[in-house]
């Protein structure tokens, strides 16, 4: 079903409305040890600072954390962009946070995280856009592909809210359009 896997250094996942059940399912279905770090940029309510990591952790097979500024990126972790900060990647394999203006009315912005991951990891990156109610991420995933990365979009037909995956498909030609079950299979397949 899938071509030869490439050695990915990171997987970046973006989503908003309707993505939570998909993310939970992904996190509970990853075969451990999972060797590729996951970077999650999910929209959520401003000023709800805690609770999200806990909610995602309940069924997760890997550890979910909100990274601190300049924290080193390691395999075996899912890093969640903290509320009210943009999350980027610096060369030297660590995160960097910022409180710049919102982008497309969002902070964290999926576009920022994706573009910065694309710039840092080039062809060693897998970018995934899931269900969501706005167009954040459409620009970012296009940049991921332009930098040589692989892109995957949740099938809009299967997405709870199709706006975000549809916009991602309109902005560029993704390598894959998968249902959530196929996304999980793919993530496990590339974990070699």
């Amino acid at each position: 079903m899938i071509s030869r896997p490439t050695p990915y250094k990171a997987i970046v996942i973006g989503g908003s409305a309707g993505s939570f059940p998909v993310i939970t399912k992904v996190l509970s279905s990853l075969k451990t040890p999972y060797r590729i770090p996951l970077i999650l940029c999910l929209h959520r309510l401003k000023h709800v600072r805690s609770g999200f990591v806990e909610a995602l952790s309940i069924k997760s097979n890997i550890k979910v954390v909100e990274p601190f500024d300049k924290q080193t990126i390691k395999p075996g972790f899912a890093y969640l962009a903290p509320a009210n900060y943009h999350l980027s990647i610096e060369l030297g394999n660590h995160f960097s946070l910022s409180t710049e203006e919102m982008v497309s009315y969002s902070r964290p912005s999926i576009d920022i995280t994706f573009e910065s991951c694309g710039f840092a990891y080039k062809q060693k990156l897998l970018g995934v856009i899931l269900s969501g109610a706005n167009k954040d991420g459409a620009h970012g995933i296009r940049k991921v592909k332009a930098y040589g990365g692989t892109t995957l979009v949740q099938d809009p037909m299967e997405s709870k809210v199709a706006t975000m995956p549809t916009a991602a498909i309109e902005s560029h030609k993704p390598n894959h359009i998968y249902s959530s079950q196929k996304i999980i299979d793919f993530l496990n397949l590339i974990n070699r």
Binding site: E100, E101, M102, V103, S104, D111, I112, E115, H139, K143
Partner: peptide, 12 residues
Amino acid sequence: EQNQGVWNTQRN
């Protein structure tokens, strides 16, 4: 002035 909500990264 820049519109706060729609400031974009490299795209422009």
